[in-house]
Write a protein that binds this DNA or RNA. Sequence first.
DNA 1: CCTGTGATGACACCTGGTGCCATTAACCTA
DNA 2: TAGGTTAATGGCACCAGGTGTCATCACAGG
Lengths: 190, 190
Amino acid sequence: MSRWEPNARERLVRAAVESFLERGYDEVTVAEITERAGLTKRTFFRHFADKREVLFAGQDILSRTFAEAIAAAPASATPIEAIAAALTATEASFGPDRREWALKVQAVVADHSDLRERELLKRAKLRAAMADALRARGVPDPAASLAAEIGGLAFTTGFARWVAPANERGFGEVAREALAELVEATAKLG
Amino acid sequence: MSRWEPNARERLVRAAVESFLERGYDEVTVAEITERAGLTKRTFFRHFADKREVLFAGQDILSRTFAEAIAAAPASATPIEAIAAALTATEASFGPDRREWALKVQAVVADHSDLRERELLKRAKLRAAMADALRARGVPDPAASLAAEIGGLAFTTGFARWVAPANERGFGEVAREALAELVEATAKLG
DNA sequence: CCTGTGATGACACCTGGTGCCATTAACCTA
DNA sequence: TAGGTTAATGGCACCAGGTGTCATCACAGG
């Protein structure tokens, strides 16, 4: 137990997203977020490197999940199969309970260019993690990089479909579906 | 003719890159750059949206070149062939004279995370431009997105090889080579 | 009881970035 | 030639993000 209110980080995230939804990302100052969370500006920047990061908490865990799942795939699995396994492994991070929250965060990110830029960085790190994990399996370049790009595209497409209003299916399902479509499209390029 | 020293924008870019090379990106303030260029801070931000942008001048032209070349490719060209044509079209923007300058800029960008993040944004815009141009040709998704990803990877790889110390070949050549390798690797994924 | 440790508060400070208005030289028009 | 317009710049005040530094406080362990 600690002497302060616990979960400072989580309180900051919630306070931030709620404030952003109410008044827009750059109408809200860090000082206002911390006031709402019962903390101070200095503490905010101890938990997050900058104002944008508060909207991307947990992305590192996602990258690790991907990398571990790719490493754990059977030795006989092709690069695409390893990526499919990784998409399945992230199912746990995208339960139905998280969908509403993801929608809120996505709404904030979508209408501010600084945040979209940061999102690109996170996606790039995800692709890099995939490519590294594939290379560790013995997949040579450029196949590893290429597979990681396809995996990133499948993830992005899958995520978009998962948070889409009408969707009822799980993330793993839609993401694997997107991956399959990409693999099929591969044949029509050349 | 204008009443002030001409080429303000170019002077700012040169002053910025030289300063960054000498003392590092975040040891140099915008005020110092503008002083070196004989201008003021306020003018800097009229030419560039933020401090990072000064290192990415001309990226929009590159995206347009790509889009136009893809649009101008013969109707019979496959998506990959259209992208190969676009890589060839950018040859003019990457003459031997530009290589030394590109090396300097790349050196600055490479060792600062904010700048690498901005570079990702530029690459993403390039991919988006390619995907849009392909869709305008009637290439359906996800093939258009996939081809754009491959094109982006070919561009990145080609650029890296072009600026590499030992390289003597032109950008178009190494980029098309990278593209060919990617297409070949496509077969080994599934 | 004492000391170390980790998370926070408090405060000063710098710089990136913007809004607003003044200035200046060229250009246009009468 | 005089006067108004326009485009690029200068000057300045101001805000907010981000950092360095030191103080504080509660708990753990000896």
